[in-house]
Design a binder for these strands. Structure first.
Lengths: 205, 205
DNA sequence: CCCTTTTCACCTAGGTGGTAAGAT
DNA sequence: ATCTTACCACCTAGGTGAAAAGGG
């Protein structure tokens, strides 16, 4: 699961219009990275590996009315990441050790009628795309940064079992430092979890 | 949750047509029932209580293509029942001690385009309704029949904690008796579980 | 040496009927 | 006497990072 969760709120929409909200993740550059332990920093390690299949993730509660989007925050807490190119569960497939930018798409749906259909090609729909550079992260299969691990243990309810008071102190110290911009993703066999901090942001139409 | 689960398969559909599959539950008669313990049987106990709000439950994977419906069984394992008229979670609301008939609706969707919309009024859509009288049941808040309890304990994975070998013997004995037609539903605070046996059935278009 | 996969204990979240207490 | 509710122990299902094992 992607964590911290991508959360977006909207304003300035038409109340009766129906909208789809989608998330995708695109490469930031054409590079592969490696982690230099002795320097505690990321280094470029050559050209990017061949890109895995592209997946566009519609929010499970989509479509929304403009009315709904005014009131509620759209939270992508259930989106899952994987490094398994053969994934058949609709997870977003990424290359480990590459940098990524999540994007949010707001699509204006045509009819208020009763017909349905998944959105496969964004470019053929009237839409707007919102990008928040502070959500850029590096995909990994094991955390390279103890502060990331601490952040996730202390803020993800499923990791409660690993919390302890010594850790909490360290985390509280780093929490006020704002960004932890060296984000990282852990790719489990077929799961991945995010770890750059993602703020609640506004997308004015 | 409704258990045993309503499961339907379809044949004879147009592969490219898109369909919605929905479930609702309607009263069988205008009566209220009571259970006479000393007779171990149901008696009419007057006119039906005022009906609670009507709810139409779309299958969560709906809409389907005709193609999909040919291949897979449509299973309503997640539908929930309640006796709470104020329910806000979209559960189907029933009166306890009344008899009910589940129904399956197959709606032909108009466009293959990309617009969306929940079906609120069945009668305004081209559809067919399928009814299986063997799925009629009585809604209850506590089981009146030990065979029903045993059936559910032995066949619902969540009740595994109540299984024991003495019960198993009794259940195996009754299992071959086919129908247990005196179905019953247990209404928990905001949950309900079914208990008439529902067979996998075919709805030829 | 660096990265990935597997397995594990420990959690969250929520579906079971039993049981006792409450309501009519 | 009959039905309903609240709470409980016991399950399923699956999300956590740690640690060890595997791979190039």
């Amino acid at each position: 699961r992607m964590f911290p969760t991508v959360r977006v709120s909207f304003s300035g929409l038409k109340a009766d219009q129906r909208y789809a909200v989608l998330l995708d993740i695109v490469p930031v550059d054409n590079k592969r990275y490696r982690y230099a332990y002795h320097k505690s920093s990321w280094l470029v390690a050559g050209k990017a590996d061949p890109p895995p299949p592209y997946r566009l993730y519609p929010h499970p509660d989509s479509p929304f009315t403009g009315e709904q989007l005014k009131k509620q925050v759209v939270s992508f807490e259930k989106v899952k990441l994987t490094n398994n190119e053969m994934d058949k569960q609709g997870q977003i497939v990424l290359n480990s050790m590459h940098r990524y930018q999540p994007r949010i798409h707001l699509v204006c749906l045509k009819d208020n009628g009763s017909c349905n259909g998944p959105i496969t090609d964004l470019e053929s729909e009237p839409h707007r795309t919102y990008i928040y550079p502070q959500t850029i992260f590096t995909a990994v299969t094991a955390y390279q940064n103890q502060l990331i691990t601490k952040l996730k243990i202390d803020s993800n309810p499923f990791a409660k079992g690993f919390r302890d008071s010594s850790r909490l102190t360290d985390f509280e110290r780093c929490k006020s430092n704002d960004t932890l911009s060296a984000g990282a993703y852990w790719m489990h066999t077929s799961t991945v979890k995010t770890s750059s901090i993602i703020y609640l942001t506004n997308a004015n139409s």
